[in-house]
Design a protein around this nucleic acid. Structure first.
Length: 452
RNA sequence: GUGGUUGUAGCUCAAUGGCAGAGCACCUGAUUGUGGUUCAGGCGGUUGUGGGUUCAAGUCCCAUCAGCCACCCCA
């Protein structure tokens, strides 16, 4: 059905977006892709391979994995003719789909299964700065390896990515759910209160020790219990000494032994991988909100900002079992890619060549006499691998230069009747105003040389 | 989800209940073969949306939508 002129003038639709969702215009996309490309390169460098799954999952796949609160934030989906409107959900993260995939395609994947996944997820939360209803997650996980060498790969991976993105000062905080369990046991915490412990301790950075103590008390935990665990949670000796400090109190507990052994082992591999010790530390107040972690957990913060964490992860040995009927050890990390992208701007970490444009050269056109030659020259430059835009209106040189300048295109090739007669072109470079007349067959090489 | 706050030109923001404005950006010209600087001129608005009060509403009231901040939670 064609759209009529009268509809255009009478039925104008106000262009709007759903709450918490965004368009990314080209200038912004180029920055996002810069980040995604570095992240992807490092994933490949570490031997992780891409996985893609549908944005929709069956409700049964997602329900019961995240808790009631999360489920109320999920977006449902159905097609207009459907009778069953509750069957499909937009994915809430990339981890549960991974678990589903591993269980479903178990015979088609080789263990260890190392996959990365960069894709949008949806959560119906109230939007705020750095927090959206549609946002990208960026996960890398290793399925099938119980050994700490896998966890060390994950930590090393995160550090390498952040270093390549030029983040100056960050630190991966490392803890172990087993140690938190042990601290709870040692202090006399009842079993059912462990999740209260996680939730309160997570706010250590924000409300401090007193605030956490108060909150634990409000959650119905005994003052004596709180008194016993606070000094252990706050242990802050350098490096491995921190573990010795915990062992003195918790050494008699089996779960503590295991947690300590894991972290000591983890550190030996991180060291062997050559990760400088300034990039990681033990922090027993870092717990992560998610319930499914079973072993070492990680979280990365930028030092001296209150920007929150920019990556998180850990070992979750039982999640895949929900789809498989048998546990499969898994560890991984998720990059807070939206926060990273925001921070890149704030800390001015984008290299200068991330411009508003991908175009290297604009080829000018002056009416019918030069157009065919310009099209031909454009094709030659593209053939030589130079990102070339052909000017497509008949406007004077001034306009064409203004256009190139505004878009940040670094070079303009001027091809007028004079140049065509002489078999040359005029190459103009914007950053220094250089202008030179050169032979056509030298143009591509000259541009290549000046681009680097 | 709870509480607070804001919404005026593309952007940043002015306007005691009384003519809707400025800077930047954009367009045109000075300059139809030379951008960025400069100068002159110009375009641009249902004041988020819908109701209400009033002689009169950008301004006051109600609702609604959206943004921001804090909490909850999280990336």
């Amino acid at each position: 059905m064609p759209i009529t002129e009268s509809e255009v003038t009478t039925k104008r639709i106000k262009p709007r977006l759903p709450r918490g969702m965004r368009d990314f215009l080209p200038g912004e996309m180029l920055k996002r892709e810069y980040v995604f490309n570095i992240v992807r390169d490092v994933f490949h460098l570490y031997g992780f391979e891409p996985l893609q799954t549908p944005v929709l999952e069956l409700s049964e796949t997602l329900m019961g994995k995240y808790g009631d609160e999360a489920e109320s934030l999920m977006y449902g989906a159905y097609h207009k003719g459907s009778k069953d409107k509750d069957k499909l959900l937009l994915r809430y993260d990339l981890t549960v789909p991974l678990a589903r995939v591993v269980a479903q395609h178990y015979n088609d994947i080789a263990l260890p299964f190392k996959r990365y996944h960069i894709a949008p997820v949806w959560r119906g939360e109230k939007p705020q700065r750095g927090r959206y209803r549609e946002f990208y997650q960026c996960d890398a996980d290793i399925v099938g390896i119980p050994d700490m060498v896998a966890d060390a790969e994950i930590v090393s991976l995160v550090v390498t990515i952040l270093r390549r993105l030029n983040f100056p000062q960050f630190r991966v905080k490392i803890n172990n759910r087993k140690l938190l369990t042990a601290i709870g046991q040692y202090s006399g915490l009842e079993n059912g209160q462990l999740s209260d412990l996680y939730r309160s301790v997570d706010k250590f950075d924000k409300v401090g020790a007193d605030g956490v103590g108060e909150e634990l008390y409000n959650r119905g935990i005994d003052k004596d219990v709180i008194g016993r665990m606070m000094p252990l949670l706050q242990a802050h000796q350098p490096g491995l000494e921190n573990l010795d400090h915990l062992e003195a109190s918790l050494g008699h507990l089996e779960v503590a032994q295991e947690g300590l052994r894991e972290l000591r082992e983890l550190v030996t591999y991180i060291e062997a991988a050559g990760i400088p010790s300034e990039y990681y530390e033990f922090d027993f107040t870092m717990v992560r909100g998610l319930g499914y972690y079973t072993g070492p957990i990680f979280e990365t913060v930028i030092i001296d900002t209150d920007y929150g964490s920019i990556s998180g992860g850990g070992r979750y040995d039982n999640l895949i079992g929900l789809f498989r009927g048998e546990s499969l050890p898994t560890t991984g990390a998720s990059l807070g890619i939206e926060r990273i992208i925001d921070l890149m701007d704030e800390l001015d970490l984008y290299p200068a060549h991330i411009n508003n444009t991908v175009v290297d050269v604009l080829v000018t056109v002056f009416g019918d006499e030069t157009r065919h030659e310009a099209v031909k020259l454009t094709a030659e430059l593209r053939e030589a691998g130079i990102k070339t835009e052909l000017y497509m209106q008949d406007r004077n040189l001034r306009r064409q230069l203004t256009y190139a300048n505004r878009k940040g295109i670094p070079f303009v090739v001027i091809l007028g009747t004079d140049e065509i007669e002489q078999g040359i072109v005029t190459l103009k470079q914007f950053n220094n105003g250089d202008e030179m007349k050169i032979a056509r067959d030298e143009l591509a090489d000259t541009i290549h040389a000046r681009l680097t």
